[in-house]
Design a protein around this nucleic acid. Structure first.
Lengths: 121, 121
DNA sequence: TCCAACAGTTCCGAAGTTCCGAACTATGGG
DNA sequence: CCCATAGTTCGGAACTTCGGAACTGTTGGA
């Protein structure tokens, strides 16, 4: 398999980054990679939580993250290792990734939305 | 026309915000509203710059921004005024909007991408 | 009241994107 | 070579986006 395409950091665009992270599954996968430093694609299946993602979709999610410049993928033997490009992206767009990951984290821990299923106890 | 739908701030989700701003036209419109404090929809036609946007698309862009919780639209006589909900959104997702607007601004002023048309002088 | 001009919205078909199961390719072990 | 594992590509259904034409709502003039 020929080497996967990774954009140079100066070709990483804000729209691609925002588009990639505007999908909660992809944001969760990316947050996981950031936390762990590195993650194998198949182990990310469980990482997204409740929702089971078919591997074709997962492959596509990794591709979108990779082509947005958010992760670097390396084949190691039989499996793919995915590393976050946090430092590079953060140097290019200071504070962007942290703010996004934070926004998702605070949203997940939020119980005050009006669409809640049951009223407060 | 009945009042337009605006989500409560606690119902504003990171994915909707990122999706709304992952379109460069919408990001430009929003950046404009932030700068000016308030903008009329039709005057935003020129605001996006080079590209002329048909009014049906423009109307849709404003709708996406409004339903993502980024702007508040009010009808004043014949025209619509659009205000940024920056303070509210910033309280909910600290630093997010500033980082995004900054990212687009630094990207626009960037001359180092490899897809440039001419080499450095 | 009727009409024209203007500001935005809605409708709807064409074009593009996303989703995911099935088939495929690449790597490693026996 | 054959099988198992890890991931990619294909292709069709479902969804989204774009934009022109027609529409609604508001103002001002006669």
């Amino acid at each position: 398999m020929r080497p996967l395409f990774h954009p140079a950091i100066e070709d990483v665009s804000p729209e691609a980054v925002l588009h990639a992270l505007s999908d909660p599954s992809r944001a969760a996968i990316f947050a996981n990679i950031m936390r762990a430093g590195c993650v194998e694609a198949c182990s990310a299946l469980s990482a997204v939580g409740d929702r089971v993602i078919p591997k074709s979709s997962l492959s596509n999610h990794f591709k979108v993250l990779r082509e947005a410049g958010l992760i670097r993928s390396e084949r190691h033997g039989i499996e793919m290792r995915n590393y976050s490009r946090w430092a590079e992206v953060n140097a290019r767009f200071p504070g962007l990734l942290a703010a996004i990951i934070n926004a998702y984290a605070s949203d997940a821990g939020d119980t005050s939305r009006s669409s809640r299923t049951s009223p407060p106890g």
